[in-house]
Design a protein around this nucleic acid. Sequence first.
RNA 1: GGGCCUGUAGCUCAGUUGGUUAGAGCGUCCGCCUGAUAAGCGGGAGGUCGGAGGUUCAAAUCCUCCCAGGCCCA
Length: 1197
Amino acid sequence: MAQTRFGKVDAIIEFPAREAEIRRFWSERNVFQRSLERRADGPRFVFYEGPPTANGLPHNGHALTRVMKDVFPRYRGMRGYSVPRIAGWDTHGLPVEIEVEKELRISGKDAIREYGVEPFVRRCLDSVFRYTEEWRQFTEKLAFWVDLDQPYVTYHESYVESVWWALSQLFEKGLLYQGHKVVWWWAQGGTALSAAEVGQGYKTVDDPSLYVRFPLRDRPGVSLVVWTTTPWTLPSNTFAAVKPGVEYARVRDGDDQLIVAAQLVGTLAEKLGRELPVEEVFSGETLIGERYEPPFDWYRDRVGDAKLWRVVGADFVELDAGTGVVHIAPAFGEVDFDLLRREQKSDPSLPLLCAVRPDGSFDPELADARFAGRWVKEADRDLTRDLKERALALHVEQVRHEYPFCWRADDDPLIQYARPAWYVRTTERVQEALEANAAIQWLPEHIRDGRFGDFLRNNVDWALSRERFWGTPLNIWINDETGAMAAPASVAEILERNPHAFASFDAALAEDPTLSPHLRVHKPWIDDVTWTREGEPGVYRRVPEVIDAWFDSGSMPFAQWGYPHRNREAFEAAFPADFISEAIDQTRGWFNSLLWISTLLFPDAEKPHPYRTCIVLGHVSDRAGKKESKSKGNYTPPEIILDRVRLEFAAIPSDAVAAGEIEIAREDYDGMDLRGDGTRVRVYRDGAEGEALDRTLRPVALPRRVARLTLADQRALGLEAAPRGEGTLPTEVPGLPPEQKVWIEDPSVAAPGADAFRWFFFASNPPWNATRHSLSGVRALQRELPLKLRNVYAFFTIYANIDDFDPAAAPCVAGKRAPAERSLLDRWILSELALANRRVIEHMDAYRVYEATGVLSEFVDALSNWYVRRSRDRFWAPGLEADKLDAHWTLYECLIASAKLVAPFLPYAAEDIWQNLARGPFPESDEESVHFCDYPGPDETALDEPLSRAMGALRELVSAGLQVRTAEKLRVRQPLEAAEIVLGVGASGDALAPYLDLMREELNVAEVHFVPKADEYVTYRIKPNFRALGPKVGKRMPALKAALAQADGASLLRELDAEGRVALEIAGESIDLTREELAVDLEAREGFAAASCGAGVVILRTTLTPELIAEGQFREVLNRIQTLRKELDLEYTGRIELTLAGDTELLEAVRPRAEELKRETLALALALESAPVDGAEVRELAIDDRPLTIGLRLAGN
RNA sequence: GGGCCUGUAGCUCAGUUGGUUAGAGCGUCCGCCUGAUAAGCGGGAGGUCGGAGGUUCAAAUCCUCCCAGGCCCA
């Protein structure tokens, strides 16, 4: 049988390139698909992918969500579950429309209508998948295994039909109704703006600030005083609100009486510049129900007996400004509107007064001639004048405040404005939603009662409709004569009503066969769908709105299957989800819409649904904890981790730059993880790497993402200056033409790669914490496990190949011994492995990925820094004796297990190891990929906790011993006579006796003893065991502590040992103390070369005999020769011939140990006191000032 | 303005039901080791645990208030 040669493992590796090879293997061998098939019969673990929008490029936050959504399904898959993973795309909504508007350089709904709804919608569709390819690559690079070939897509007809079904269910249950919603309205553009957009457009402006009298009808001469900064809303005034439970005052103002909140009388008096003596104080409630004269009479004769213009109570009334009486215009304020809705519960006839048309002008039907048709903001001044003339304005001034403007047209102020809207009556089912929420496992837990619970408890009805174009059309048709409504749940149901319903779309399709068939269920074509009914007058026409895109994504549990029109069983088998995860901003987004839709549609399903466990991810911030933002440029693009260490800069030629140099911002320099003040970099134009220049990069004070270069370099690279120079915003750089920007790349190191990125997100902190992201951070964590594991793996292949160790070969298999027969060290690391394995499973089952990475790191550290380190001489031993074979097997088993253990976290590294170490020897094995393997279960027989504890103590003692050497300036190469160990009180040397060889080697001492009578070396410090004594001793604790500190430790201990207890006199009382109630610390006495640790005290005998000195000198010589071997890059097995000459004492130290020297250095010949032979590599050096000449040449030359 | 979260070493983070010398990694300095290692080991410096009160024999941990940052809403 041919010997396996394991592939050579380079310690230095370009991870992105290696990962690409592995990715190719996965795709060629269809590994993901097959991993699913192999588990198809397993119990189901249901994962829902929250659909991203692909009309922007993926960023670091997406990387976090991708890897978190990957690690748990991978883990569960390896644990035997069937875990199908379907990708999804969120395709509808305002952001898409806005992108297209930008592209078309148009703005507003009228502009869209002018452009044409049909071509507009088609452009939306195109734009949705603009970055699909980037998303696919991003997803694949991060090894997020999800089925990208058969994704669910929210604009697809089958998806829309499912959403329609959901809406028709709500409609039939009476949970859909029409009302109004107050939105931030851009009147000139005829559109509502989202909160995020509004947030972008605040400006500081001066607005009028009015104090207005509302005369009470039934109390002549008495007026309420209200304060407003929007006079234009006064004609639509409906109520005046006061705060119940707060004191109000009636004050005298000349012949008038005014009513304001008692605590604001002074403020108002100051404004008016006159005394306002208080006549009466009363509680706010007593005002409720009072009628008043509205400030304008535009509605007076129009609204019949409706109980308008009266005082109502409201808790939101604030008393730190204004008058404590609030003007309520429900059409122009959200809280105002909610108040109207509240009042409508007892009096449904209350109208919504709105004297303003959607274009922001006063309605000529209502307004008097002076104001009809005028833009409301412009009318403020005349309205104010009118109020003054009628003596209703008590006081007028200007106020400077922040007010939102349209971010696209920044001269246009926004107004709050009530628009007709469709609502989902969620308030009726809050209790059920809360029950579902209570049953969900939220990670972190506080989301349940905190952020999300609060949100649910404060639920208001879901405003579902959007007056836009690109979205799922609201499937409600209204008879234009009778007002009857219908909500068909599918295309088929529409066709039943009118077989030619889609004639207009069919015609469009006939004209243009490239038209996506899915657009049949979209605007504008869906608006042409109508029908009539036998015996009923009128035509059913669809309402014009589309719906909130959150309803789309929240429907994915069933809509991804097209349920209930299709795939009923598939849906039922995959409901609810066991696990979902998104970032915290989805609390009110996807997490919310999923929960509500499920709660409303499936009231009988067992809770929680539609998800059982939800990990709420923190945001990814920059290295300073600031939100990453493309416009600030504090953004490390994911490519710098995944592909290459480079950034793109706007080119700024400057004659101030030194020849051969380039200057960028210090922040960008740090962002590329460059050190010092100058680094060699490559500079090139995009796509012209062949003509790259090598330059020295200098960090200076500059704005981000601009690079200053010399005029000569500018010419050499064929660049133009970026037109906006240093004022170029980071966000503009990608859009510059290629001749105005440069790439700057650090060619000295490869990017860390996808596994490193994944590990960073898992291992840096718990997933719900905000993560500070940087290249240096990723690299730091990469060293912690991925690189360490790779080093061990490389070590193994070196010696396995040297020894022809082959796990498939008969001699190796025959020589494989059970772990119990192997050496202590082997048994120890196998025990650690089993322990780590058990703990990783516990953590991962509980979704504690961060803790799981900690366990893995500790294990790999133990493997690398103790097992391999202590086993090195076993691997160097000649031949392949039993002990060496044990070492190979043990390390092999650890690596194979590690590959499986890390597979969900580091799918590439795991595959790399697996292919080389498992598939290499066993090419016919069933597990072609590590991702086909079962996750290992701990080998319970290998678990040996006493062994783990003992080795832990040993490692501590060794550390202490090394600490002594450091303190005494005794290098480890210098052998010492002995180490004495004083163990902690009560510990026995027996448990550690088997490890003393390890300790002798590690400390380089001839002997290790336990010292039975330790008083000579150490003192004992005795402290109370606070935890045990706390309840018993209570307030006397400080006194006890002091007494123990002063007592003689050794004699106390002797008494304890003899009597089993000691008695101490504290504050006149005697306290009996047992051994368990005391803690004893050892401390080395002065004058010894000693150090203490938790396990005990280590004392080194530091006297050097001539023999020890000679031994030390020999070690030095050996070290120099080995170093030379390494310098010369010799093969590990390469034989050499040696000559040594120089200091006599050195040579005499070597002479008796010549055989050992030859063995260790693989020297066939050793000549002392002889000159180097021809062709030898010669080194002249000194060891402690003693000259030595080494001549080394390869044997056989 | 409200809600939630976070604040521990220069940086990134741990820190069990409160238990008395607050830990790790990185960085830095000194030293060591190296025939796997972009490594590793030992040590030093570095902390009023955001601040102020309180509860307790005992507080990073529990309570109250305040400050700063983040997120979500207004």
